[in-house]
Amino acid sequence: MTKILILILTLIFTFNVHAAESNKGSMPKHEWSFNGITGTFDRAALQRGFKVYREVCAGCHSMKLLYYRDLLDIGFSEAQVKAIAAEHDVLDGPNDEGEMFERPARPADRFVNPYLNDNEARANNNGAYPPDLSVITKARRYGEDYIYNLLMGYEEAPEELEVGDGMYYNKWMDGNQIAMPAPIYDGSVDYDDGTDNNAAQLSEDVVTFLKWSAEPELEVRKNLGIKVILFFLVLGTIVYLAKNRLWREVH
């Protein structure tokens, strides 16, 4: 009976993994600073990643779930956050005269969308909707590895494949055709801190930023997790000893 239990548990836990892996070939894994049980985000990489997002992605991709104040978490000062927010205008109102008015965004405002609405986004991108990036690493199979590989996966299309009009060949995209032109290449963003700005570094940084955006609680979560598991282990051990004592008398 114990064997059945083990069998059941193994089956359950391999379930998703198998289902996931049977889909596509193997997705190359990247070394991330936030992997593992003690993984954390590199603040410098997050700030660089935000720069990449701002200069490269933000033209088409919204991040509606983020507030400018969230940037405090990745090490920007209050003044910096205020300045970043103030670069964008938001519609507010109505004022006392009943009119809507534009004002510079504040830290308590959400990231301003590049387009007024989804239809405008589609119209400006050949009918393809640039997805919101707030939780993108949670919304794609293989998460951060997939996004990283996708950014690095632009290649010459093989001859037998007819790439559609306004489409680009990408090794990792479903169906290998993507409406987004290669967004990142060597040196496309200048870094202030002297970090090498080759395409791999740019992609790694922006994906780190996207991962943080999707799971801002990651560090707190892992930290608390270690404590909770330790708690159950200690309590479990003590109760186990107590149980052995207690049951010794049962005949």
Partner: peptide, 20 residues
């Protein structure tokens, strides 16, 4: 007391998933 042990083992398993 046996149920408590079971709870602790369960706690470790579910915490591993919830937190990691």
């Amino acid at each position: 007391i046996k149920d408590t042990i079971a709870v602790c083992v369960f706690g470790v398993l579910i915490s591993a998933v919830i937190f990691f």
